[in-house]
C-alpha cells in the first residue's frame, strides 16, 4: 500500500535523506583499494571541520576525499537529476515509457563528444568533452523542438516521435564517425558513451549541483500542472494550465538538465525510466510527493550502482551505464515477478 499521508511522506523523505547521506559516506570505503569505514568517516569528519585523530595514510586520504568523494556526489546528483527528468517527461508525454534519452538529448551529446574527440581536439582544455557534449545536447533539443512544433502546437506524441527520430539520425552519424575515425580515439568516445563517473572533480561539481537543485525547484513549481497534464490536455486547460506552454517549459527544463548531466557522466540509462515507477509504487503519482521521492531514490540507486561499478571488476572501472542497466533491469524483473 503506497504511503500517502502527509506525516508518512515527511517521515519517508527524512528517512531517505538520512539513508542517502549514510550511503554516500559508506560508499567511500569501496573501490579497488578497500579503506576501513572508520577511516572514511574520520576523513569526512576532518574535511567537514571536526578535529579527528589522523591515523590514516596520506594516499588513503587522497583516494577518499579527492577521488571518491566527488565521484559519489556526482553519482548522487546524476541519479537524482535523471530520475526527476524521467518523472516529468512521463507525465508530460503521458507515456510511462518515456525516458530522458528518448528525447534525443543523449545522442546529441554523443555527437558533440565524437566530433571533439575525433576532429577538434581539446579546444577548451579538460572541459572540451563535456562542453561539446552539452552543445550537442542543446542542438539536438532545438532540433527536436523545431520538428515537433506544428502551427505553434507542441503535441506530446509528436515530441516523442521527433525525439526518437532525431536520436536515430544522430546515432547513425555518431556510429559512422566512430566507424571511419581513428580507432584509438573512437574507443575513448565509446567508453564515455557507456557512462562513467570517474571524471568527477570537486571543482566541476558546482555546475550539476546548481542544475539539479534548480531543476528540482522548477519541477516542483510545475507539479500541479504535471498532475493535470498527466490526466489529459482538456483537463489541464479546464484547471487553468496552458498545456502547450507547460509542456514546452518542462521539455526545455528537462533537456537542459539532461544535457548537463549527460555531458559529465555519459549516457546512463535506466535510472530515468525505472526509478519513477519504483517511486510511484511507493507514494503514488501525485507529483508534489513523487518528484522529491524519485530524486532521492535515483540518487541512492546510482551511489550504490557506482560502488558495484568500482568493485565488480576492480581494479578496472566497469562503465556505470552497463551496471545500471544490468542491475536495474534485474531488480525490475524481480519486482515484476513478485
Amino acid at each position: 500500500m503506497p504511503i500517502r499521508g502527509r506525516l508518512g511522506i515527511r517521515l519517508l523523505l527524512a528517512g531517505l535523506v538520512c539513508v542517502l547521506v549514510l550511503s554516500c559516506i559508506s560508499a567511500l570505503a569501496f573501490g579497488p583499494a578497500v579503506i576501513p569505514q572508520s577511516y572514511v568517516w574520520s576523513i569526512v569528519g576532518k574535511h567537514l571541520g571536526f578535529a579527528m585523530p589522523e591515523d590514516w595514510s596520506r594516499s588513503q586520504e587522497h583516494i577518499v576525499w579527492l577521488i571518491r568523494a566527488p565521484r559519489v556526489v556526482l553519482g548522487a546528483l546524476v541519479g537524482a537529476g535523471l530520475a526527476m527528468v524521467g518523472v516529468a517527461l512521463q507525465a508530460v508525454t503521458r507515456n510511462p515509457l518515456a525516458d530522458p534519452h528518448l528525447l534525443g538529448v543523449s545522442s546529441g551529446a554523443a555527437f558533440g563528444a565524437v566530433l571533439v574527440v575525433l576532429y577538434l581536439g581539446e579546444f577548451a582544455g579538460v572541459f572540451s568533452l563535456p562542453l561539446a557534449a552539452f552543445l550537442g545536447a542543446l542542438g539536438s533539443m532545438l532540433l527536436v523542438l523545431a520538428v515537433a512544433r506544428r502551427r505553434g502546437q507542441l503535441e506530446s506524441d509528436r515530441l516523442l516521435l521527433a525525439g526518437v527520430a532525431v536520436s536515430f539520425v544522430l546515432m547513425a552519424m555518431v556510429n559512422l564517425l566512430l566507424f571511419t575515425g581513428d580507432h584509438h580515439a573512437a574507443a575513448s568516445v565509446v567508453f564515455w558513451m557507456l557512462g562513467g563517473l570517474g571524471g568527477a572533480r570537486w571543482d566541476v561539481l558546482w555546475l550539476p549541483g546548481i542544475c539539479v537543485v534548480a531543476g528540482l525547484f522548477a519541477l516542483l513549481a510545475m507539479a500541479r500542472g504535471l498532475n493535470a497534464l498527466m490526466s489529459g490536455e482538456q483537463t489541464a486547460v479546464s484547471l487553468g494550465f496552458n498545456g502547450k506552454g507547460l509542456r514546452l517549459q518542462a521539455f526545455i527544463c528537462t533537456s537542459l538538465l539532461t544535457g548537463v548531466l549527460v555531458s559529465l557522466s555519459g549516457a546512463i540509462g535506466f535510472v530515468g525510466l525505472m526509478v519513477p515507477h519504483v517511486a510511484r509504487a511507493l507514494v503514488g503519482a501525485e507529483h508534489r510527493r513523487l518528484i522529491p521521492v524519485a530524486a532521492l531514490l535515483g540518487a541512492l540507486f546510482l551511489v550504490w550502482v557506482d560502488v558495484a561499478a568500482r568493485t565488480l571488476i576492480a581494479p578496472e572501472d566497469l562503465p556505470i551505464g552497463i551496471a545500471t542497466a544490468a542491475l536495474g533491469g534485474l531488480f525490475f524483473l524481480v519486482m515484476l515477478r513478485r
Binding site: 503506497p2 500517502r4 512521463q90 507525465a91 503521458r94 510511462p96 500541479r224 498532475n227 493535470a228 498527466m230 490526466s231 489529459g232 490536455e233 482538456q234 483537463t235 484547471l239 510511484r280 509504487a281 503514488g284 503519482a285 501525485e286
Partner: peptide, 16 residues
Amino acid sequence: EFPQEFGLTVKDVVAM
C-alpha cells in the same frame, strides 16, 4: 477524459 492509469487516488484527483 479520465486520468490515465498512473496511480492517482480519488482524493488526488479531486484535490487537483
